[in-house]
Design a protein around this nucleic acid. Structure first.
Length: 459
RNA sequence: GGCGGCGUAGCCAAGAGGCUAAGGCAAGAGUCUGCAAAGCUCUAAGCAGUGGUUCGAGUCCACUCGCCGCCUCCA
């Protein structure tokens, strides 16, 4: 397998430290509902994990919650509830969203507020080694003490400083020095520390949690490209300075960002901003197919049109995966060479998780299946493969879940229509089909009878 | 100013020096069907531009044009 490493700027052969791949994915700061950017990132790394497991690796997946932060405190003040409650609320929503999107849960979900001992240990270690200094109850990382600083974002200290609009804290030695520990302000949560009451800075929690739960070096550290600087850059600085072990991370993976739509677009698509809203319109599989249709490092732009296209495609895969070949002699050995498709899928995914190409393989396989079904050739094995590989990409193959009270009545109408068709009362039969269609129920007459499904009327 | 990315058919999107440039959606024709739908078969249409390297370039280099991200909280 080859993986693109942000640190080196190129693809590298993937060689984990052991058969257990240590994977850390940057989690959320729970102060608001998750949006499609989160959906993309976590779908991407869900597929990374699923594929690694498919390839025979064991994966230990750790994902943090940064549950103490300015944004949470602000939100708490607005809502007049404790910061901890804000965090709990959005963590719960996070899990609900991710479960719906069929994203596998990490093995450990450490929270910043529960890792204070490790955090203070790392900070103290950095001070002791001269990589950090205290200033009036704050503790800053001394950027100038790290000769490698800027290696992930491929920037020099000078160039970073040139474009920076960083507030120059009067207590900082260097404008790019960043806070490891922040002295408490009135009304904020605090913890005791050797430097007085305060709370952790933004980047230190990830270092501490990664070191504690995965050791000095992890294999894969993932997140959105927006985290490269300063967050991941600072994580490297802190962690490698503290442990004096390089590398902190063997493969840095960053997904492309979801583009904000232009104003004009965002109006019509405003409903798609949060995951919850998107799920009201589109199935988890559809959203996933849309995300995986392009390479994970490319930026993507959600659009109504794009999601509808993905929906159609997903339906095609689903039907092929479960197409009822009952009239064919199911026991017959299929002529489809499943091995070829499996290998093509592996080749695609081995090349830095080229999910777009992998999907093309699934669509090719789907066509093979449909063709074979109509020729009466057995397709069991091929269908099983399609489902297996689909599951590697995280598809559920479940139909859109709308179980309405209307279902029995629809069944009744279809049953009556079947009688009408027997009587060759085409006009009435068509009338039923047409009227149901207007209501968003699509009927399809197949040799075995009539199938039906919901479809959005404006589709 | 610094770092990075993008421009492939109507739309989305792989590919990356050399057989006929994947795949999806949309479109047209055919097939199937009582009629539809789905499926299948076929069809049209594409490498932003200009130079260069090369026996050979979407694929490498240079420049031009257009678009975007990050450098500040962000997955």
């Amino acid at each position: 397998m080859r993986i693109y490493n942000t640190l080196s700027g190129g693809e590298e052969e993937f060689l984990p430290q052991s058969e257990v791949v240590r994977m850390y994915v940057c989690g959320i700061t729970p102060y608001a509902e998750c949006h499609l950017g989160h959906a993309m990132s976590y779908i991407v790394f869900d597929v990374v994990r699923r594929y690694l497991e498919f390839r025979g690796y064991k994966v230990k997946h750790v994902q943090n919650f940064t549950d103490i932060d300015d944004k949470i405190i602000n939100r708490a003040q607005k809502l007049s509830i404790p910061p901890g409650e804000v965090a709990e609320r959005f963590i719960a929503q996070y899990f609900a969203d991710m479960d719906t999107l069929n994203i596998k849960r990490a093995h450990v979900y450490p929270r910043a507020t529960e890792e204070i001992p490790k955090i203070t240990e790392v900070i103290q270690g950095l001070i002791d080694k001269g990589y950090a200094y205290e200033a009036k109850g704050d503790v800053y990382f001394r950027v100038s003490s790290d000769p490698d600083y800027g290696k992930l974002s491929h920037q020099s200290l000078d160039s970073l400083q040139a474009g920076a609009r960083i507030e120059i804290g009067i207590d900082k030695e260097h404008p790019l020095d960043f806070a490891l520990w922040k002295a408490t302000k009135p009304g904020e949560p605090w913890w005791e520390s050797p430097w007085g009451r305060g709370r952790p800075g933004w980047h230190i929690e990830c270092s501490a949690m990664s070191l504690r739960h995965l050791g000095d070096t992890v294999d894969i550290h993932g997140g959105g490209q927006d985290l490269i600087f300063p967050h991941h850059e600072n994580e490297i600085a802190q962690s490698e300075s503290f442990t004096e072990i390089t590398p902190f991370v063997r493969y840095w993976m960053h997904n492309g960002l979801v583009q904000l739509e232009g104003e004009k677009m965002s109006k019509s698509l405003g409903v798609l901003v949060t995951i919850k809203k998107a799920l009201e319109r589109f199935s988890p599989d559809t959203i996933r197919l849309f995300v995986l249709s392009s390479h994970y490092r490319s930026p993507i732009s959600f659009s109504e049109e794009g999601l509808k296209a993905a929906e159609k495609g997903m339906e095609r895969l689903r039907q092929a995966g479960f197409a009822d070949g009952q009239h064919a002699m199911a026991e017959e050995t299929g002529t489809i060479d499943a091995g070829v498709f499996r290998q093509k899928f592996i080749d695609a995914m081995d090349a830095d998780f080229n999910s777009a190409q992998a999907l093309a393989v699934l669509f090719d396989l789907a066509r093979e299946i449909n063709r074979a079904v109509s020729q009466g050739v057995g397709v069991q094995e091929a269908q099983q493969l399609l489902r297996e590989l689909g599951h590697v990409l995280g598809f559920t193959f479940e139909e859109r879940e709308i179980r309405l009270v209307a279902d029995p009545f629809i069944e009744l109408l279809i049953s009556i229509r079947a009688d009408l068709r027997k009587e060759k009362q085409w006009q009435l039969a068509d009338e039923i089909r047409f009227r149901l269609n207007e209501l968003g129920v699509v009927l399809e007459d197949v040799p075995q009878g009539t199938t039906w499904k919901y479809e959005r009327p404006d589709g």
